[in-house]
Each structure stands twice: as C-alpha cells, then as structure tokens.
Computed example of a mutant assay.
Amino acid sequence: MSIRVSALIGAALVLIAQQALAEKKYGPGVSDSEIKVGQTIAYSGPASAYGVLGKTEAAYFKWLNDAKGGINGRKITFISRDDGYSPPKAVENVRSLVEGDEVALIFGVLGTPLNMAIRPYLNKQGVPQLFPAAGSSALNDPEHFHWTMGWQPNLHDEAKFYARSLLAHNPHPKIGILYQNDDFGKDLIAGLKDGLGPDADKMIVSAQSFQPTDPTIDSQMVILQNAGTDALFLFTYAKQAAQAIGKMWDLKWKPETFLHLGAASIGATFKPAGLEKSVGIMTAGFIKDATDPRWANDPDIVAWRAWMKENMPGTDTNDSLTVAGYAVAQTLEQVLRQCGDDLTRENIMKQAANLKNFRLGLLLPGSLINTSPTDYRVVTYVVLQKFNGTSWDEVK
C-alpha cells in the first residue's frame, strides 16, 4: 500500500514539474499574442539619414507578423519615436515607452551619446537595451551594465584596426583627425591612440572637433590640411563625412582616408558627397555591400533584394543602412525565438547573451555571432575595404 501511495505521489510530482516547465512566463509588454518593442531614433535633425534604420526595422517586423505570424505565435508591436538625435528627447521617449507603453525592451537606438544617456535609466529599471546603432565599447560592459548590449563592431576595436592597417605600410604617418565632440568621437580617438602605441601623440599632427549641429566642418578641414596631414581619420556620421569628402575635393587634397564604418554608406554618404570624390575612402567592412558585383548572385543578397522590393518599394537599395537594419532586426528575432514561452526581461537578456555560432547571411563570410554572459560583443569580424567609385574592394 505504501509503495502504491509513494508511486502515485511521485507521478503527481512529475506531472506538477512538467506543468511548471510548460508554464508561460511573461514580463511587461508580453502576452499570448504580443511582444512590445520600443525604439527612439533620429527621423529628423542632424542624423536623420539614419532614420532609414528604424524604417527598415519597422518593415521587417511588419513582414514578420504578416508572413510568419510573428515569433512563436506572438505579433511584434514596434513603437518607434523620433528623437531628432537629442539625448534629452531620447530619455523622454524611453521613459514614455517603458512607463507608458510598457514595452518589453528598447531596441536599435541610434548614437553613442543617446545610448549613454538612456543607459542608467534602463539598467536601473531592469529593461533590456538591445543592439543599439552605436559602437561604443561602453555599451558592452556586462559587469557594470547587465541590461545593455551593443551590436556592431565596437568603436575602440575599429579604430585600433585602422591604426594597425596604417602602420603596416606607413610607420611614420602624419595623422589628422576630424571627430564628433562627444563619447562617440572620443572613444574612436582612444582606440586609435591605443593602436598607434607610445608614439601616438607624435604621429597625430592635428585633431579637430565639431558638434553634431554645426552647419559645416570646412574650417576644420582647412586646418587639418595645413597641418601636413597625410593620413586622415573621419570619426563622423554621414552628414559630416559627406561634407569632409566634398571639402577635400575642393582643396585638391587626397590624404589616405579612413572613415568610421557607421558612415561608410554609399547611399547616405558617398552619393551626397559625389561618388567620384569618394574614391579611395577606406573603412572596416563587416556586412555585405549590396552594390558590390561579387554579391550579385549571393542567395542572401538576392533574398534581401526581393524583400526590399516587396516591403520597402522606392527605397534606395544602395544605402547600406537598409542592409544593417534588416540584419539587426533578424538578430532580435533570433533572441526572441530562443526565449520560447519565457519572455521575462531577465530571460530576454539571458538569451541575448547566449547566441552560439549564429550566422546572419548578410554579414561577411567568416562572421559568426557568439555572445556570453561575460562577453556582450555581437559582430566582431571586420576586413579593410576601399571604395572604388561604385562598390567596395577588399584591401589585402
């Protein structure tokens, strides 16, 4: 009798355990039918060219809902608001998204200064700040900011990569730097100096700053030329990069030029500057360029083009930001799929920190995403590439 009772009790305990495992766990912004995702981004203001990121991500989530029924049966409600590239406005938007709309997470916010402004609030509230369109190494600091994870190659490593590439063939360069006077620009300068080594300050002959709202950077470019710069680093976003390229052309000045990867867009930077004027510009490539003939028949680019034609007709497919927006949205999709029915904010961060050999087809071959609770870096693989007037050539 006691054996039978014990067996029944054991079976009941197993059943209870199975039910507990199968139980759905939801945090704010999640239900049986919905996952709310919030974003603040520059649809206006000095960085408005990057608003196409938000538009692409919105189109992707809409397609995901319509074509695939969302993620694990739940539709994505994507709430994206304009901050005009203003940190105070970004903070205001994020507070409204978290406290008013009760989103599950904040996604794809543009710009280092804006992400740094919202980071303290989101970490205090325990809200995931996932995959910002910013490369500051400070956005990958899981020890101190558990709830914040970047996506693109980080700025410090990017600039170190440029320094090594330059020194490999020019051990005594005369370096000029045009940089945005905020955490974004300063992080790149720190990485560059780290890569140049102990003689960095001797090599840098001039460093000229600007504010994002400055109407022009012409005077800074003249100073950099007059300093004898033969290696120029443009630590800028698209607007100032286009202005700098145009001014170099006017000055008949052609230093070896390295451009921050976030501004290395044919559509957003080189076309406004002039394709002919942009020949020879170098950057750290990490994602396939849809204009490059070598990817013309690539299955992932072909699929992306078909998707763009159907879901974003009329959008300039030469703009690499559309490729980036598509890829980063796919990354969030993977994280949420891995969550299954446990969509607490804690598990969303846990899954973001447990991406294993995840391959995004639009990243360059050889790029695999591997994250861990102690290493939040997402995209780490880069190659040096040079613009040839129509597309990019890899620099061997």
Rank of each mutant, 00 (worst) to 15 (best):
T236C: 05
L178Q: 09
F358P: 00
G195Q: 02
D342T: 04
T257Q: 07
F235I: 12
L332S: 01
V109M: 05
M282C: 11
S44N: 04
A104G: 03
E333V: 14
F61V: 09
I204E: 11
S6G: 13
R119F: 01
M308D: 10
K186L: 14
L362W: 08
L261D: 10
A306T: 12
G389Y: 01
L97F: 07
D218L: 00
R4I: 14
A133T: 11
N154V: 13
A190R: 07
G73S: 06
I16N: 01
V5W: 15
S265H: 05
G126P: 07
D342K: 00
N297S: 10
V30D: 01
P212G: 07
V103S: 07
L364V: 03
C339E: 03
N318D: 15
L355Q: 09
G111P: 02
A20R: 10
S48E: 13
R345W: 03
A134F: 08
V382T: 15
L64D: 09
A22G: 06
K350S: 09
L362S: 07
A163C: 01
S136T: 14
P153A: 06
A306Y: 00
E23A: 12
P373K: 02
L21V: 07
E92W: 05
V302M: 00
Y376T: 12
H156T: 08
V379F: 09
L364T: 01
L114R: 10
A90G: 14
Y376L: 00
T344P: 01
K202E: 14
G84V: 04
E158T: 15
